[in-house]
Amino acid sequence: MWKLIRIQFINYLRYIIPLGIFLAFYFTEFYEGGKLPVFVFLCFWAFLLISGSLSTSESYEEKNNGYRILSSLPITDREIVRSKFLMVFCAVTMITLLNVILLIIRLQSVEGLGMKIMIGILWGVFCLHYGALMYIGIFKLGYTRMTKYFWTAFLFTIVLMVFFVGDVLSGLKIGIDSLNKFSESLLWIPIAIAGVIVYYFLYKYTIRIKEISEEV
């Protein structure tokens, strides 16, 4: 299993190295001008890291029949799934922690900090679920078929969100003030923990999918 984790880590590293370069550049060039909040960038980056590294590694596996190679080696389906989920979890946790730490370090005023931390962590949970759903699709359908359905559904959801979420939020009178109050109530912490627990169950479910699936 560690062998697989190491290979995936190298794959993630490809995305983490440019992140470091960007952050170095960001702090010297942009931050002083306050043109782009690092918080938004890191949220975006967490999503990009999971989506990008997962797509490249899984399309590579499919092209090379990687899962067929693995199925002839002494490694169980459980270990294959565990290594994938563990890497997603580590990558998202690291970026989310980095985000929170940077928010605290670069803190100019306390105003809005709680909300940013909350959004950062909930976004991290969203990225975990996104990765888990991708893997469920991959082990059920194979990468190519999964992307066909998944991306269509994903783009459809984004379009729906862009057009309707704003209206729904304003209809429910959820504005910045409400979000601030919600973040101060710390109710989001159990929600985030529940999100991580859901991720664990998605992992368990993926093992079942992998164990009953024919060759992917």
Partner: peptide, 29 residues
């Protein structure tokens, strides 16, 4: 599964390897 496959050598009808890798890399993997 692990114990059984540790004691089995398998050659399939189709040979699957990571295509853009070398024998050295394959052995390491």
């Amino acid at each position: 599964e692990k114990e059984i496959k540790n004691r089995i050598g398998y050659v399939g009808e189709e040979q699957y390897f990571y295509q853009n890798k070398t024998i050295k890399w394959t052995e390491k993997f």
